[in-house]
């Protein structure tokens, strides 16, 4: 009899306090749409625990795929994390909400230059998530000079020793930079000059191949002296092979940024803002950055990096280097010209 009354009392206590427990807010759910393997899962768990908001998580592998899924009505997303030029396009097409920075106090901690990116003035629609650059990854065992310029990957001295990216935007973009043109130029003369340089590079027998995913493993295995590479992949390769170094050439390059946005279709705006704010909190951003190992947009996280990490240009590019770099702009209006040029180079 005594046991029973204890149980009843316990049950009463639970029902009484239940509304106060976080579980009660569990109906609140947001759907986050992010790149594949681009978040530390424990960060999501911690967010759910602390706020009681449930997170549904969906992946994409290219921003174009994200765009198709988003526009074809395949799913409703509360947070999307696309790249700079796609954000520019989504703003143009009026698909993103303006953010309420009162709900994102932690965004104050962003690195200063990222608060006003060219693709989204004053960050009205997006808050940076991760960022990086395009540069040259080179193997000091094979290269005895100091690499500072894009000219090096066009030097016939390196026979079959350079991997180029099978990505028309990056490859043509860096060649434009080498020749001193803006990376987003519409000038056909400039584009033709870049095309000629890339065709000559191929004719001279410098290029070992045009690849994307395979390059990092090949560079780790010492298959080539140099490769054009995204800083994130470069960092991965450097961790595996000590002889590899990454440099952002002096002519400048492309800088890219993935940022969190809230689509107009979002129904849970407050929870979405809470998620963005959470991801900007320095301890969370640090944890997430350590998992992904890309450059962080949060100033305080940079200060938390150790000495060795700070020295990697792939992880912590210097301000001068970034100043020489440009964001890509939406190319959909002159893709035909790019298509022709790219076919002529690779065909």
């Amino acid at each position: 009899m005594k046991k029973l009354s204890v149980l009843v009392a316990l049950a009463l206590v639970f029902t009484f306090f239940a509304p106060v427990l976080p579980a009660a807010r569990a109906e609140e759910t947001i759907t986050v749409f992010n790149w594949y393997d681009y978040i530390d899962d424990s960060v999501i768990e911690q967010f759910e625990e602390e706020t009681g908001i449930k997170v549904k998580y969906a992946n994409f592998t290219t921003v174009e795929e994200m765009y198709v899924k988003m526009t074809s009505g395949g799913g409703k997303y509360d947070i999307i994390i696309p790249s700079d030029y796609m954000i520019e396009r989504l703003i143009k097409e009026d698909m993103l909400q303006e953010l309420d920075y009162d709900l994102i106090p932690n965004a104050e901690g962003l690195i200063e230059w990222m608060k006003d990116p060219s693709y989204d003035p004053e960050g009205a629609h997006s808050v940076p998530y991760m960022w990086g650059t395009v540069g040259i990854l080179y193997n000091t065992e094979y290269v005895d000079e100091e690499i500072t310029s894009w000219q090096s990957i066009f030097d016939p001295k390196y026979q079959k020793d350079v991997f180029m990216l099978k990505s028309y935007r990056d490859t043509i973009g860096i060649t434009l930079k080498m020749l001193g043109y803006p990376i987003n130029t519409h000038d056909e003369e400039a584009l033709n000059a870049a095309k000629e340089a890339l065709i000559q590079q191929k004719k001279d027998g410098i290029v070992q191949g045009y690849l994307v995913d395979e390059v990092k493993d090949k560079m780790i295995g010492g298959e080539a002296a140099m490769a054009v590479m995204w800083s994130g992949d470069a960092m991965y390769a450097i961790m595996e092979n000590d002889s590899l170094e990454y440099v952002i050439p002096e002519e400048g390059s492309n800088v890219w940024l993935d940022a969190m946005c809230i689509p107009k279709t979002c129904e849970n705006v407050e929870a979405a803002h809470a998620f963005i704010d959470f991801m900007c909190r320095p301890d969370i951003a640090y944890k997430n950055m350590q998992y992904i190992y890309y450059s962080t947009p949060i100033a305080e996280v940079v200060e938390m990096l150790d000495e060795e990490e700070l020295e990697y240009e792939a992880l912590n590019p210097s301000e001068e280097a970034v100043e020489r770099c440009e964001f890509f702009q939406d190319t959909s209006d002159f893709i035909d010209i790019y298509n022709k040029i790219w076919n002529e180079i690779t065909a």
Partner: peptide, 15 residues
């Protein structure tokens, strides 16, 4: 052609 030709020989399929 991508894996063994290292993307040097674009074939119709690649295109």
């Amino acid at each position: 052609s991508r894996l063994l030709g290292s993307g040097n020989f674009m074939l119709l399929g690649d295109m």
